[in-house]
Nucleic acid binder design. Structure first.
Lengths: 209, 209
DNA sequence: ATAAGCAGTGAATCATTATTCATTTCTTGT
DNA sequence: ACAAGAAATGAATAATGATTCACTGCTTAT
C-alpha cells in the first residue's frame, strides 16, 4: 500500500471543487444557466472538463448545487429581514423589500433563479425555492393574523400571491434582453419597489396606505 | 407553362397547414412544447416531416404560431369578460375569474403558455402574451380609477402584480408533475380561485370584502 | 398524351454539447 | 528510488432530434 489519502490531498480536492463552484456561479451570474458551458467552466477553474465529473455527477447536478447555494443565500436574507422588530406587517414589508431590492442588485442571477427557462431537474429546485419564500411569508402572515395586524385569510394562498406578484413585476425589468440595453435609474427602481409593495400590503391587509 | 397554382391546390395546401396546426396544438395540450416532436406531429397530421418545413420556417416558428393562436383565444375571453356590465371593479373580478378558471380547465395548455420552460423565441412570445393580459387589466384599472371605485395607483404596476399573483398561484396546481397524479376537486378549485381573487381585489382596492 | 413545374417525401445529414475512459501525471509510504 | 494507487486529462464518443435535399409523383394547360 503506497498511496493513502492525506489531509493535504483532501484540501486540494476541496479547493478544486470550490473553484468549480465559484466559476459556475460566475458564469451563471453572467449569462444564466443555459449559456454556462462545462468547457468554459472548466477553463475558468483551471481544470480539465473530465475533472468536473470527478466532483459532480452531471452538469445538472452541478447546476442544482449552485441553484441551492444561491437560493439559500437569498432566502436567509429574507428570513433575516423577517426577524427584526415591529409588528408582522412591518416585518413583512421589510422582507418584501429585501427580496425585490436584492433581485435588482444582481439582475442576471435573479433572472436565472426566478424566470430563466431551465431543465426539469432545475425547475424542480426552483419550485422548492419559491416554496421556501412562500413558507417564510406564510409564517409571517399567520403571525400577523394572531397579532391582529393582518385580517384572517388563507395564509398559504396569500403568500403564493406575494411571490408571484413580486416575481412577475421583476421579470420585465430583469429580462436579460433588456438588462444590457436599458439601465434602470435608482429612482425608478425605488418607485417600482414601492408600488409592488403597496399592492402586496394592500392585498394582505385590505387597507389603503 | 403547364402547372399553375389553382384554387383547389390553394385549398388543399391550406388544409394541410391547418392539420399541422391542429395536431401541434393537440401535442402541446398533451405534453407541452418541449415534448412535441416534429416527427410525431407529422405522423399525426399524415404528412412527411419535410412537409412541415414547406409550411413553417422552423419548429420554433410553428410553435410561435401555436402560441399566438392559443394565447389570442385566452386574451379574447378575458377581454370579453371585461366588456360586461357593472363597475370596473366588478368587471375586473369577472375577468380574473375567467382567466383562472379557464386555466384550470385546460391545465396542460395553461402550463405550457404560462410556465413551461421554453426556448428564447417562445419566451419572447410569452412576454407579449403576459403584456397583453396586463394591458387589458391596466385599462380596466384606469377605468376604475376614473369611476372612483378603485383608488388612484400605478395601474401598469398593479396589472403586472395581478398577472403574477394569478400565474404563480396556478403554477403549483397546474404543474404537470402533479397534474396526472392529483385530481383537484371542483370545490377546491373554487376555493382556490376565490382566495386568489380576494387577494387581487384587495390589492387593487385596499378594501376588505 | 405530354411536358413543365410545383408539392410531398423521408432517409441521411448536421450541429451541438454533455459525458466517457484509456492514458498520463502526481502523491505517498517504504 | 520505486511501486501502488489515486487524480487529472482532454480527445473521442454518444445521443438527440431538427433540418435538408435529391428524388418521386401530382396537377395543370396544351
Amino acid at each position: 500500500m503506497a498511496y493513502r489519502e492525506t489531509e493535504k490531498m483532501r484540501q486540494r480536492k476541496a479547493q478544486a471543487r470550490q473553484r468549480i463552484i465559484d466559476c459556475t456561479y460566475e458564469c451563471v451570474a453572467n449569462g444564466g444557466f443555459r449559456s454556462a458551458r462545462i468547457t468554459r467552466i472548466a477553463g475558468l477553474a483551471g481544470v480539465a472538463t473530465g475533472t468536473i465529473y470527478r466532483h459532480f455527477e452531471s452538469r445538472e447536478d452541478l447546476f442544482a448545487e449552485i441553484f441551492r447555494t444561491a437560493t439559500q443565500r437569498e432566502v436567509d436574507k429574507v428570513a433575516e429581514a423577517l426577524n427584526t422588530d415591529g409588528d408582522a406587517a412591518v416585518r413583512l414589508e421589510a422582507a418584501l423589500r429585501q427580496f425585490a431590492e436584492r433581485a435588482m442588485r444582481g439582475p442576471m442571477m435573479a433572472w436565472a433563479l426566478i424566470a430563466e427557462p431551465v431543465d426539469p431537474k432545475l425547475e424542480e429546485e426552483r419550485l422548492v425555492y419559491r416554496r421556501a419564500y412562500a413558507e417564510l411569508f406564510e409564517k409571517a402572515i399567520r403571525d400577523g393574523i394572531e397579532e391582529g395586524c393582518i385580517p384572517d385569510q388563507d395564509a398559504r394562498q396569500s403568500s403564493t400571491c406575494l411571490v408571484g406578484a413580486i416575481a412577475e413585476s421583476l421579470v420585465g425589468p430583469l429580462s436579460p434582453t433588456l438588462a444590457g440595453q436599458i439601465t434602470i435609474a435608482d429612482i425608478d427602481k425605488n418607485k417600482l419597489v414601492d408600488s409592488i409593495i403597496r399592492f402586496c400590503m394592500q392585498g394582505l391587509t385590505g387597507t389603503r396606505r
